[in-house]
Design a binder for these strands. Structure first.
Length: 585
DNA sequence: AAAAAGATGAGGGCGGTT
DNA sequence: AACCGCCCTCATCTTTTT
């Protein structure tokens, strides 16, 4: 349930201007001494490998693809033989750490990275992106400079940064680079067989240092997992089939037990959501940032009459969940009884597809009517196929003889588990209702996951709701009977804020609703002030923008670093602040 | 000016068959 | 393993209408 992404456009020009200047200056001053990225390594690898032996070349390519240089790979294969990929990889990783020169503890004046972690270094992520957008061709070196300085400002040494950039290739994202460095550090510790000792790294940004600190005892496990992932050539997280996560109501499954990484254990509890079918690698990154918690992928078709494949990263208990009552209709016929009369037997749909932000046009339904009215009984298979394809694509339902139509907004509200007319009135247009609803949670699904909180917080909870949208989390908790004490809701879209405010007043809430417009303005000071006033948050919920992840996006599906979807890093930033506050207090 | 309609595929999972 | 066909996807941009 991301905020209305369209609302971002107005004010994205000035929020990072300061940091941009800062990094700008930084990169210019450091560029003179920077050795140019070794482009030959990347471009040349293809030729070399294709001319290599047959079975050998594949192995060769694989390691080159991981970002190691030809020379290293050749040497490693020679040393280990080409059968033992595991030891080859170990050797390669040893090389890469040995080549890292001893910490020269590059001191960085990081007065700007004060303890409140106001996100200045994370802003660099979007800077990298917007720059490459503007100067696509000429800025290769410039971009590398930018990455280098970003890495250095995150507390890594120049050597670490340069080597990571060399190994990971020109197109490596900042996340990949930090991951590489992290892996190198871990393997170094492991190779030395020394007790894990914290190298006092000067003035790391608190997000990074806290993350590394918390990871300490999991380093080894993490490293093994990452190594396995590399060997499997399977960086992407696998989606479960069937997509029932850690369990759904009325579906037989073995009792699942999970152990959370220690750094992830609450309180505070957190609950993060986004589209399941994101571009490759996105969920791996999300999971790594959110304390290595394994995502729970659930299709809401197990909760209601429409599909909704989503991933949820949370640290909630998963035992003794219970569904919201009354149970919502589980089939199209139950949800929309009036359509039954007109539903042809050759349309075998029992569930609707994912509810999105746009609806089918009147012209389309007219074309379908025209295509059907030539036939008395069943249309030919070809026509059936055409009609069914369009119906599935646009979630059309049968409302008359040969007549299909898109869902009405109140039908979408019902399917998603919201009260009737939740998004109606208050000056919102029909188009915007579809948009807000399409971006929302499926309430029954989320409520099922959050239900475990009911016994834990009989007196109610303090909720931080980021990217609140139309308040799916709030509605879910309310319907569960969990009192809402203090709710801080951050949502960029004004109409959405009005919807939540209106719902809050109509449901006679006893608590206190504070709504803010922009997550990027929610800095450490403001957050601390809020938390001090009512004793911190019990739960941090958020579904960050999916714009740049969702398959429906034809134009800007550029992943987690995309303009809107990069706000995920603000979710992490804020969650990390809340966690740190709770741990100290 | 605002709302609605219309035009616009790529990408990836999955199950089946070679 | 590899290939193929089927299916689905929290959307954006431009044009037209109100």
């Amino acid at each position: 349930m991301d905020g209305d992404a369209s609302g971002v456009e107005g004010d994205n020009c000035d929020w990072n201007s300061e940091d941009e200047r800062e990094i700008d200056d930084f990169s210019l001053s450091s560029s003179s001494s920077l050795t140019p990225p070794n482009e030959e390594t990347v471009t040349g690898s293809g030729e070399a490998s294709s001319s290599a032996g047959s079975s050998n070349s594949k192995l060769f390519d694989k390691f080159i693809g991981m970002g190691f240089t030809e020379k290293m790979v050749a040497k490693a294969i020679q040393e280990n033989g080409e059968d033992n990929t595991d030891s080859i990889l170990n050797t390669l990783l040893t090389y890469s750490t040995l080549e890292t020169s001893p910490q020269e503890q590059q001191h960085i004046d990081s007065d700007n990275y004060s303890l409140d972690c106001d996100g200045s270094f994370l802003d660099g992520f979007s800077d990298v992106d917007s720059w490459s957008d503007n100067e696509e061709i000429t800025n290769t070196v410039f971009d590398e400079d930018n990455k280098l300085s970003s890495l250095m400002s995150m507390g890594y040494t120049r050597d670490e940064a340069s080597i990571a950039m060399e190994r990971c290739g020109l197109n490596a994202s900042l996340v990949e680079l930090t991951d590489f460095i992290c892996a190198a550090q871990i393997s170094k510790v492991e190779d030395a067989h020394l007790p894990v000792e914290e190298k006092p790294r000067p003035k790391l940004p608190c997000i990074v240092s806290a993350k590394l600190k918390k990871r300490k005892q999991y380093d080894y496990e993490m490293w093994k997992r990452k190594k396995q992932a590399l060997l499997d050539d399977d960086e992407t997280i696998r989606l479960p089939n069937p997509m029932i996560g850690f369990g759904v109501p009325n579906e037989s499954h073995p009792t699942i037990h999970r152990t959370l990484p220690e750094a992830a254990i609450g309180p505070p509890y957190f609950y993060y959501e986004n589209v399941a079918l994101a571009p490759k690698g996105v969920w791996t990154t999300i999971s790594r940032f959110l304390y290595d918690v394994e995502p729970e992928f659930v299709d809401s078709k197990y909760f209601c009459a429409s599909a909704r494949k989503r991933g949820y990263v949370h640290n909630l208990p998963i035992q003794n969940r219970f569904p919201l009552l009354p149970l919502p209709p589980h089939t199209i016929h139950e949800a929309l009884p009036l359509t039954r009369k007109w539903w042809p037997s050759w349309d075998e749909r029992t569930k609707l597809n994912c509810l999105q932000t746009c609806i089918g046009s009147a012209k389309l339904t007219e074309r379908i009517r025209k295509a059907l009215e030539d036939y008395d009984g069943e249309p030919p298979l070809r026509v059936q196929k055409y009609v069914l394809d369009e119906c599935r694509k646009w979630n059309l339902v049968w409302v008359g003889r040969n007549k299909v139509a898109p869902l009405e907004p109140d039908e979408v509200e019902m399917l998603l588990g919201f009260p009737r007319n939740h998004t109606r009135g208050g000056g919102i247009s029909r188009t915007d209702r579809y948009k807000s609803l399409g971006n929302s949670f499926q309430v029954d699904t989320v409520a099922y996951h959050l239900s475990v909180l009911k016994d834990m917080f009989p007196g109610g909870i303090n909720l931080l709701s980021l990217f609140s949208g139309i308040g799916g989390a709030e509605v879910a908790l309310h319907r569960l009977g969990i009192p809402l004490k203090n709710v801080v809701s951050v949502e960029i879209s004004e109409v959405n804020r009005n919807i939540v405010r209106s719902w809050w007043e109509q449901t006679n809430q006893k608590g206190n609703l504070i709504d803010l417009a922009d997550v990027q303005q929610l800095n450490g000071d403001r957050l601390e002030q809020l938390m001090n006033s009512f004793g911190g948050f019990d739960l941090v919920v958020g579904g960050s923008p999916c714009n740049n992840l969702a398959g429906s996006n034809r134009h800007h599906r550029d992943g987690l670093e995309g303009k809107e979807s990069a706000l995920f890093y603000d979710y992490f930033r804020i969650l990390d602040l809340v966690k740190n506050w709770s741990n100290v207090s």
